[in-house]
Design a protein around this nucleic acid. Structure first.
Length: 608
RNA sequence: CAGGGUGUAGCUCAGCUUGGUAGAGCGUCUGGUUUGGGACCAGAAGGUCGCAGGUUCAAAUCCUGUCUCCCUGACCA
């Protein structure tokens, strides 16, 4: 537009637009295979729309082609990731996707990662792995490439296809066996200070916040379970979405938010001293190891039962831990670990049976006959009478009372009371007196970890520090599921007709729907508008297909490009164009042709 | 990995019980009429019925094996 001053325009351009000239593509010259029907196996909105709108096609279980529209969006997400990572001081590089399995030996992940690791043999019979993540490769690299403490801190990242042999890929791009991921690794010699892990971790936290904000996503950063490293050493970034796979708990007053695996529960009242109300009665409950069946059989609620789970301290033969929670609650293994102070694992049934446990019918009373650590959740203490296992196959008891039936253990202070169950909606907040936790669902798109020296010590990555003492390098790692971000965005932003992209990661910013493209001058007009838009940084898709208006409007909704112009012989006649945002309700509105560019620029301001 | 299901045209599916040599709708192509929310008429192309064995004069259909993909669960740095 001649009336727009190029200079000032450059400055006022929406951040999502190209700082240089945008691109103009014709629908007929690219591949956008839209369909009326989704494949029968697509169930989630993102899967259905990605296929119907011509973004992806399946190749195998959890393996997909990224067609041009999807690839454009993936590139835009990647570019935002690059800009923010670079700005935060990280350097991009690229590691190979395949590597000798031996690399995983030192960290034992060749075994611990188990079947998740894709492996194959090359012609020489060497076992080779396809990388599910690259801690080992980069740690090995650093062993040879870093020789002095003066080279730290370092933060390196790559954007690459990752491979995991998921037991069950599902939901299109949400859980794939091959997927695109950004993974970053940082290296330090201390935790605190400018060069420390904590500083980089905080910078990554901020970078992730910037990235997902720029992508236009509705997301939450939540505390996550980090494994043995402990502390607040891990955060997940979740796209908020009602049908997400993960459950998060939030405190509306303090802002506390955590994954269900991590969420703490606030102060709860409990006492060992509730007086018994009935005698213990034994009941025959054949083939009912599960809470549900027993509760129904005994005519009690699951919340009136005790669930006793047998764990074993990892690396030991018979160091048993019995965790007791209320029947309607779920034991949280990480919390049990923290409560007893060592790693624990679910006891192998055969060995627990050999030790005397009647698996499926265990009660706290086994304490008297088997050496164990007994941990109890506060909510499992708050009634005078419980139904629980009889420590005998096919039998349960009612009338169990802690003060009477566990008197010895309690007197010896051998009953440890701790928060060992998963938090639920309605539980007291750990951060605000009187507040209650609320449950929400999300899709994990980013995860940052403080790894500590787990990998460096296992693989011998150490350097001499300033004091000339050999020191293991401290690491952090930071992942973003790039392809998952694309589908998570659709899960949280769509309507019945299709995708609704935020400007920043839409494959194109604007689409021009051309009605009667064969008519004299219509395509010329569309091309003219497209080049005006491109001059201002808009990426433009012109739907130049020779088709009726109906299907073209349907496809435009499906594909979800944020801004839509419609040009037809009618609008040209009136010197107008039609314009609407994908997110606007109803039909497009007619505007004067020479206001088209202004309208697009103005509309950008109101979109995210 | 356990349980369940599935495989027939590009997509959605029928046909299988009761064996007789493959169908519909949508899409695609041609010609015509049309042109504002998935048009109409006429015509056409397109499938070794997942694969391999077996039974039979004859197999999409019955039998055996195998693979694929999906669902629920478990699993998920």
């Amino acid at each position: 537009m001649s009336t727009i001053n190029a200079q000032s325009d450059q400055q006022s351009r929406h951040a999502a637009l190209s700082p240089t000239t945008g691109c103009v593509h014709n629908w007929t010259q690219t591949l956008v295979p839209t369909t009326r029907d989704a494949p029968a196996d697509a169930e989630t909105p993102s899967h259905i729309f990605l296929v119907r709108a011509g973004y992806i096609r399946q190749v195998g279980a959890g393996i997909y082609n990224y067609l041009p529209l999807a690839w454009r969006t993936l590139r835009k997400i990647s570019e935002i990731v690059r800009e923010e990572m670079d700005a935060a001081g990280a350097s991009e590089f690229l590691m190979p996707a395949m590597m000798p399995i031996e690399l995983y030996k030192d960290t034992k992940r060749d075994e611990n990662y188990g079947d998740l690791l894709f492996t194959f043999e090359d012609r020489h019979g060497r076992r080779t792995a396809l990388g599910p993540t690259h801690e080992e490769v980069i740690t090995d690299l650093m062993c040879g490439a870093v020789t002095s403490y003066k080279q730290f801190p370092l933060n390196l990242y790559q954007i690459q296809s990752k491979f995991r042999d998921e037991f069950r890929p599902r939901a299109g791009l949400l859980r794939c066996r091959e997927f695109i991921m950004k993974d970053a690794y940082s290296f330090h010699l201390e935790l605190d200070g400018e060069a420390g892990l904590n500083h980089t971790y905080d910078k990554m936290y901020q970078a992730y916040t910037n990235i997902f904000t720029r992508c236009g996503l509705d997301f939450s950063a939540v505390e996550a379970e980090a494994g043995p490293i402990g502390g607040s050493a891990s955060h997940e970034f979740m796209v908020n979405c009602a049908n997400g796979e993960d459950t998060i708990l939030v405190c509306p007053e303090s802002g506390y938010a955590a994954n269900v695996e991590k969420a703490e529960i606030g102060q709860r009242n409990w006492s060992f001293d509730l007086a018994p109300t009935t005698e213990i009665t034994k009941h025959h409950t054949p083939d009912m190891p599960g809470i549900e069946g027993v509760a129904e059989h005994l005519g009690v609620q699951p919340s009136e039962m005790l669930k006793s789970i047998v764990f074993r301290r990892v690396g030991t033969e018979a160091k048993w831990v019995v965790a007791v929670v209320r029947g309607d609650h779920d034991v949280n293994e990480a919390k049990v670990r923290d409560a007893v102070g060592t790693e624990v694992e679910l006891a192998p049934e055969a060995e627990a049976t050999k030790a005397g446990f009647s698996i499926g019918y265990v009660s706290p009373r086994t304490f008297d006959s088997i050496k164990m650590t007994l941990v109890v959740d506060p909510d499992a203490l708050n009634a005078p009478s419980w139904a629980t296992g009889a420590d005998e196959k096919d039998h349960h008891i009612t009338g169990f009372n802690w003060s009477r039936d566990m008197a010895n253990a309690i007197a010896a202070e051998k009953v440890k009371v701790a928060d060992i169950r998963n938090a639920e909606a309605g539980d007291p907040s750990p951060r605000a007196e009187g507040a209650k936790l609320e449950a929400r669902r999300g899709i994990e798109v980013g995860h940052i970890f403080k790894l500590g020296t787990k990998y460096s010590s296992a693989m011998g990555l150490s350097v001499l520090n300033k004091q000339q003492k050999k020191q293991d390098v401290i690491m952090g790692c930071y992942g973003i599921g790039v392809s998952r971000t694309l589908s998570a965005c659709i899960e949280s932003a769509h309507d019945d007709n299709g995708i609704i992209w935020p400007l920043a990661i839409a494959p194109y910013h604007a689409q021009i729907v051309v009605i009667r493209p064969d008519d004299e001058g219509v395509m010329d007009e569309a091309n003219k508008l497209a080049s005006e838009l491109a001059q201002q940084g808009f990426d433009v898709l012109i739907d130049d297909r020779d088709d009726r208006p109906g299907p073209k409007f349907k496809d435009a909704d499906l594909v979800g490009i944020p801004l839509r112009f419609i040009i037809s012989p009618k609008t040209i006649e009136a010197n107008q164009v039609e314009f609407k945002a994908r997110s606007d309700e109803g039909k497009a509105e007619l505007i004067a042709r020479d206001k088209a560019l202004h309208a697009a620029i103005a509309k950008c301001g109101s979109l995210n």
